[in-house]
């Protein structure tokens, strides 16, 4: 086990930011911290790195208790923060070299590592550029390069894709997968459930400083009653129709938003057939009908009664 957080409590005056948090992260996994803004994700990271004092609990990294002076532990950690943290006055190369130099003293080794990091994030053509001259996506890549250049065993990425265009986001996510394949354990925080679903093998969902669900994606999705969603694009459905759909087998809930009818159902072999038969019998006109498996957002919605991005 690489990370063990036990009963972590962090208070800001009367506000409890982390409420008896327990997390365990195994070597080699991509672990997700999912939660809406203000749920305590960044506070967990700051406590993990001893950047913040906490009120109660224990944090163990690589089998040792983490303290502000645990430099041997810090040597194995790479941090990529939510906001880009680089010197505007240094070039791309110099920035990576500086942050790598905080971990690696040997000049030749550092030179190699910086070169590798530059190639890894695809900034080879921009090494002499100053950060203000880089686009948002390139800047994020530089931010990542500064955090991973020293080849850490544990990489913490705190919402690294905020305000990034889709293409750069895909590049970043692919890069994270590669880092994991190279042996790094990843802690990835995000409020984008799609990213967590795409990347993480295990995750916890945080809300108001509490873990409300943890496990693999499948385990978490299995915690809720929702089996699938059937979505129908319809134009002449009435309240009466909706009441009758609610009485069909396995239907949990029916919701109409503009012309989209969402039917949330428990697992069942003939859910779609039942709905299609009802539509045909009642002469309801429709455009598209499709099904969706539950997402982490559905898990969050069912547990907390609100959406992740509320």
């Amino acid at each position: 086990m690489i990370v063990k957080i036990e009963n972590l409590v962090k208070r800001y005056d009367k506000l409890i930011a982390l409420d008896h948090l327990n997390i365990e992260i195994n070597e080699g996994e991509i672990f997700g911290l999912l939660g809406p803004n203000g749920s305590g994700k960044t506070t967990v990271i700051n406590c993990l790195l001893s950047l913040l004092k906490f009120d109660k609990g224990n944090i163990t990294l690589f089998g040792k208790e983490m303290r502000p002076s645990s430099y041997d532990i810090k040597r194995n950690i790479g941090l990529v923060m939510q906001n880009v943290a680089v010197f505007e006055e240094l070039t791309v190369y110099e920035n990576i070299d500086y942050f790598c130099g905080l971990y690696i003293k040997d000049k030749d080794k550092r030179k190699d590592l910086v070169k590798q990091a530059i190639e890894f994030v695809g900034l080879k053509d921009f090494i002499k550029f100053y950060p203000p001259k880089l686009s948002g996506g390139l800047l994020r890549r530089l931010n990542i390069a500064c955090g991973i250049a020293h080849h850490p065993k544990l990489i913490i990425l705190d919402e690294p894709t905020v305000a990034v265009d889709p293409q750069s986001r895909n590049n970043i996510l692919e890069g994270i997968k590669k880092l994991n394949e190279q042996g790094a354990t990843i802690i990835y925080t995000s409020h984008y459930m799609e990213e967590i679903e795409q990347l993480c093998s295990r995750l916890v969902i945080l809300d108001k400083g509490k873990v409300i669900a943890s496990g693999t994606k499948e385990e978490i999705k299995g915690m809720i009653s929702l089996g699938e969603k059937i979505i129908v694009e319809t134009f002449n459905i009435t309240e009466n129709h909706m009441d009758r759909i609610r009485k069909l087998p396995n239907v949990i809930d029916v919701e109409l938003r503009e012309n989209t009818l969402t039917i949330r159902q428990k697992n069942g072999a003939s859910n779609l057939v039942n709905i299609m038969s009802f539509i045909a019998e009642n002469d309801i006109s429709y455009g598209k009908i499709y099904t969706e498996l539950p997402t982490l957002n559905d898990v969050f919605l069912e547990i907390t009664g609100k959406e992740l991005r509320d």
């Binding site: 790195l49 502000p68 002076s69 941090l79 906001n83 943290a85 905080l102 971990y103 500064c146």
Partner: peptide, 19 residues
Amino acid sequence: LIFNDKEIKMRNYSAPISS
């Protein structure tokens, strides 16, 4: 001001260098 930037400071303090 450059070195006191919150993000830069955090990145430095998370590295194996004492404050």
